[in-house]
Amino acid sequence: MLSLVGCGSAALPGAVAGASSSPGGGATTPAATPSPLPSPARVGTAAPGQQIWFRPTSITLPGRLTTQVDIASTVDGHLAVPTDVAHVGWWDGGAKAGESFGSMVIAGHVDSVGGLGFFAKLLSMKVGDDVTVSDGRHQLTYRVGSVVEVKKGVLATGTSAFAQTGNHRLTLITCAGTYDRGNGGYEENLVVTATPTGPVTAVRS
């Protein structure tokens, strides 16, 4: 027979029944009912459909051109991409590859005084091209949906290149347009936007 304590508590199936009061007339605290040996708690697990997302460490453009992706932070309002123009940088405030929402931004120099950068390749990219990012264990391929030039002053305020709302997309940024040496260099940004072609998959070793 269960003893019910408190308002509204109902007997639960499987609850342990037991004595509810102390024996005799002594002023002893009622002992808890003897119970079976404690059983181990279950361990919560991720459901099989758990989405994977990852910070990219490499990027592959059409023609199997692959390079390292470093981390790029915003410093004094400027995105500090790798000074080595052979590498590109993933903006640390943006989405990771495989998230459901937000732009994942990877930016890199189109050139330097020493030569063309890896992202000079963006200048010849077309709608329908594939771009793959990886961290060595996972990979995700995106398909280019647009290639546009944007006046530099408009990139941040007039596009959704950095927005973290909206469906997940990959945004590749470099410089383009007229180069004005005396007035800040390139006048435009080239913005390539691509959307995932499927889920994150494991890299085949």
Partner: peptide
């Protein structure tokens, strides 16, 4: 992570422009 940037300056030297690569026409 850091805030979104105001500008992305990703080109110095102007080589791409010199090579006629920098205008995509888009």
């Amino acid at each position: 992570g850091t805030a979104s940037p105001t500008t992305v300056n990703t080109g110095t030297g102007g080589l791409a422009a010199q090579l006629g690569l920098a205008h995509t026409g888009l």
